[in-house]
Amino acid sequence: MSEFAEVLDSLRRVRGINPFFALDVGRPDDTWLPGTALLTGPALKTTIDAIAVRYRAEEPRVAASLFFLSYTARLLSPLTAVHKPIDVRPENLWWRHDPANGLSVRIDEPRLGPPAVQALEPVVAAIQAVTPVARGLLWGNAMSNIAGALKMVVRARMLTAEEARERGEQLMSAPPFEGAGEFVSFPGEVGFVRRSCCLYYRVAAGGKCGDCPLVK
């Protein structure tokens, strides 16, 4: 099987888990921006500002956190399920944001690439360049999405809970996920408590997430 076909087949097999696992492929219409627009130009800051307005977030770092939480959910959910290094570098992505439907992301070419951490690092740097937000918080968002994806993969019976926890703990054995949280045992389930907070509780009508360290 060619790399092209392998990636397409892998994405097809997981897209039915839930909408976050549906990563589309191919060049879209002109309402989408190239992924490189995340790294240069005004699009990233404009989008973070729009999220701040949408959620009535008074602190720019809160909107930046919500952007990266959404961005990584749409990329790391399918990548966690397929367990392959699909190329999600900005140069192989398209994205758009609108107030009604939020953030959408798709890949340009179905191909393998570097590890997801390497692909996400330039976006982390770009967010920090336009918004004062902690690096550990952003990577905590990414790890939270991986843990959530592992939970869904277990429910889809693609992994056992033990296999999923082992995979998550292996990720957290090295930067940037080292110390990002802790997997907790539930029979047949994946539980996770993160060390940082995504700050969603600081938006109007917001609250604390299920893996939030502030939940007592």
Rank of each mutant, 00 (worst) to 15 (best):
P122F: 07
V130I: 12
A147E: 04
L103F: 05
V133C: 01
V123W: 05
G113L: 10
V105H: 00
R74S: 07
E109P: 00
W139G: 07
W94M: 08
A129G: 15
E109W: 05
Q128E: 14
L150W: 12
L120I: 09
A134N: 08
N141E: 13
N145C: 04
A125G: 08
W95E: 01
V123L: 11
P90C: 03
L103K: 04
R106G: 03
I107M: 05
V153F: 13
Q128P: 04
K84F: 03
A126M: 11
P110D: 10
R106M: 05
V133Y: 00
P110L: 10
S77Y: 14
E109G: 00
V124N: 09
V82M: 11
V133D: 00
S77F: 14
G136V: 07
I86T: 04
K84E: 12
D108T: 07
V133N: 00
L75F: 08
V130Q: 09
A119Q: 11
L120V: 11
L112A: 09
S144W: 00
T80Q: 13
A73I: 02
G113W: 07
W139A: 12
H97M: 04
T72R: 04
P114S: 15
V105R: 01
N92K: 09
A116F: 13
E109K: 14
V130K: 02
L138Q: 02
A73R: 13
A147S: 12
P99N: 12
S77H: 14
L138I: 09
A81K: 12
P99V: 11
V105E: 00
Y71Q: 04
V82T: 15
V124F: 09
S77I: 01
Q118T: 15
W139E: 11
V130A: 08
D98N: 15
I86G: 05
L103G: 03
A149K: 08
V130L: 04
L75K: 02
R96V: 08
A142I: 11
M152C: 12
P114I: 15
A126W: 09
R106T: 01
V117E: 15
Q118W: 04
V88M: 05
A116K: 06
V153D: 11
G113K: 06
M152E: 15
Y71R: 05
L138A: 06
Q118F: 07
R106K: 11
L76V: 14
L79D: 03
L112M: 15
P90S: 05
R89H: 09
A147W: 03
A116S: 14
N101G: 09
W95M: 03
V123D: 06
S144T: 07
T72V: 10
